[in-house]
Design a protein around this nucleic acid. Structure first.
Lengths: 107, 107
DNA sequence: CCCTATAGGTAGTGTGGCTACATGTAGCAA
DNA sequence: TTGCTACATGTAGCCACACTACCTATAGGG
């Protein structure tokens, strides 16, 4: 997939992958790769700053824990994050309808 | 629709709207608005530079004509543009499958 | 001892759609 | 005749944000 097409949709991906479970950054990257059959392989330099941004925005909350000597910052959705995810999903529906419609020569 | 979500998909829209017909810049903006039921209202500062870029890339060809005293630069797809459009459509399919799959909690 | 996988992070770059602005014609209304 | 709106094309500069490149650190296997 062409680089940069992700732009504007990364937040939705991160919120979606955290829907109903807690994950740390590294595991988020793996989960996204898994769910996309390897199509998504996001660099840490993309994911970590985005997670911090989403936390600052109030959509995520994090806490540190230590598993077998390694520190992990585990993220979970906040209430606001749940709502943001719902909004992102709705926007995605609209987005694909609009662009897809034009690409198929609609109206 | 949130600004910037378009990023990476503008070329596809412009190529698609010129598929099978010739249009000038202003008419392209109107056609995109029409096809998207008003959801797309692209500013001229977005469309005109993009058209010139696509022409430089060899995907579009243009010629000037004058209609009722007004100058128009009319664009049409080149052979390479047709192929690029096909590629963009395929990429769009892949893109929506990947992102949509993650958003719906696939895999 | 080194390499890999795991884990988190920052600094700086580059792209590309956006805002804001500049230019000009045609036509209608006050 | 002045002004407004629609039509029509274009450039300069900004900024968000994903990216590249880099740094740090532990655990475990070869």
């Amino acid at each position: 997939m062409k680089a940069d097409t992700l732009r504007g949709h990364l937040d939705a991906l991160l919120l979606a992958v955290l829907d109903g479970r807690k994950l740390h950054g590294y595991a988020i990257i793996e989960a996204l790769s898994l769910r996309s059959d390897g199509a998504l392989d996001l660099p840490t330099g993309t994911v970590y700053p985005a997670l911090r941004r989403l936390e600052r925005a109030g959509y995520l909350a994090s806490e540190w824990d230590v598993v077998s000597g390694r520190k992990r910052r585990t993220y979970r959705l906040t209430r606001a994050g749940q709502q943001a995810l719902a909004a992102e999903r709705a926007e995605w529906q609209e987005f694909t309808a609009v662009i897809g419609g034009v690409l198929q020569g609609g109206a």
